[in-house]
């Protein structure tokens, strides 16, 4: 296939197409469909919600958006709430939950993923199979994973309690326990995404040339010294990418939490910011103006992180 197409026919078709398309026109023709779609579906909505974030507006009401300036932002950041709301206006609480969740899950993922990569870096028979098997959780749908872990965490029917406790598993309902629920979500997230970190680290570890270790061994460098001075610096760029990517994703987490606890138990101990937004912006709350403002606060955070991420990716490309 490739050979045929690599060598064009000696006598290409005589009849040239009637319209000769120049390279410059072609560039525009090729790029604009993509750009238009992205502008319509991403840029325009973002500007629209920027406008909405300065207004008092409800998605279901007939009243047009009412300009209120930065009142929404003030309200969110000053942590004062409408007295008539369910639990006040505790956005800071949601930010704190999200931050705690991000630190816990990303930290554990890096540790577990890196250890897995260290375990799998030497080739052995069946290495490819094991690596692929371990990668399966990463490709699953978060929603499906969430639903299923709900059964696994179930105190009487699930296997988690039976694996973790020696007696009377009915007492240990992780998802209903305000103190453990966040850890339960972290466990699922770590189960799902450590393979991603492992995949990146494995690429880094396999790319380290053997002669570095040989030279170090000849110089009688200890295993720890070799790890610290050869392995870590070589894997560091990939670890950075994993860290940034997972942090961005952690701030966006929605499906997993929505399926596992939906913010409960104990009121809202696991209500991450994306879930709070969903509750504010969609039925029955329909608090469009204020949720747009909150959305913009996350957006700024995520965009800052994505900047770093894309830069790190770019640096890796150049090498």
């Amino acid at each position: 296939m490739s050979q045929v197409s690599a060598q064009p026919h000696a006598h290409p078709r005589r009849r040239q197409p009637r319209i000769q398309v120049g390279d410059r026109l072609l560039t525009h023709l090729f790029i604009w469909p993509t750009l238009i779609l992205l502008i319509v579906m991403n840029v325009f909505p973002l500007f629209y919600s920027l406008y909405l974030s300065f207004t008092e507006y409800s998605g279901i009401g007939d009243t047009p958006p009412d300009w209120v300036g930065i009142e929404n932002y003030e309200e969110i950041l000053s942590n004062t709430g409408h007295p008539d709301k369910r639990d006040g206006n505790r956005y800071w609480h949601n930010f704190a939950v999200t931050g705690r969740y991000a630190v816990m899950s990303v930290g554990l993922q890096l540790v577990v993923g890196f250890s897995l990569a260290m375990l799998l870096k030497e080739k052995f028979r069946g290495n490819g199979l094991v690596t692929t098997l371990i990668l399966i959780p990463m490709m699953l749908a978060p929603a499906v994973v969430g639903i299923f872990w709900k059964l696994i965490f179930d105190p009487s029917k699930g296997i988690f309690s039976y694996m973790m406790y020696t007696s009377n598993p009915r007492d240990h309902a992780w998802l209903a326990d305000p103190e453990l629920a966040l850890w339960a979500i972290v466990i699922v997230d770590v189960w799902m995404w450590s393979p991603f970190v492992m995949l990146l680290c494995l690429a880094g570890l396999r790319a380290i040339p053997d002669y570095l270790y040989e030279a170090a061994a000849i110089d009688r460098a200890s295993a720890w010294f070799q790890f610290r001075r050869i392995t870590l610096p070589r894997v560091a760029p990939l670890l950075l990418i994993a860290l940034l990517f997972r942090t961005i994703e952690a701030f966006k987490t929605f499906d997993l939490v929505a399926e596992l606890t939906f913010g409960n138990p104990g009121g809202d101990t696991t209500e991450v910011i994306a879930l709070r937004l969903y509750r504010e912006a969609f039925p029955p709350q329909f608090n469009t103006g204020e949720s747009s403002a909150a959305a913009y606060i996350i957006l700024i955070l995520v965009i800052a992180l994505s900047n770093l991420y894309i830069r790190a990716l770019g640096r890796l490309r150049e090498d």
């Binding site: 790029i31 993509t34 750009l35 992205l38 579906m41 991403n42 325009f44 909505p45 973002l46 629209y48 919600s49 909405l52 998605g59 961005i248 701030f251 966006k252 929605f254 994306a274 937004l277 969903y278 912006a281 969609f282 469009t288 949720s291 747009s292 959305a295 913009y296 996350i298 957006l299 995520v302 965009i303 992180l305 994505s306 900047n307 991420y309 894309i310």
Partner: peptide
């Protein structure tokens, strides 16, 4: 442009959906 294209991927779905929901309706 490439940077812009990739950055659209990073947007949190919930944030994008609020205006798109209004638009779509």
């Amino acid at each position: 442009l490439l940077f812009f294209i990739l950055s659209t991927r990073m947007l949190p779905p919930v944030v994008v959906t609020i205006p798109i929901f209004l638009m779509y309706r």
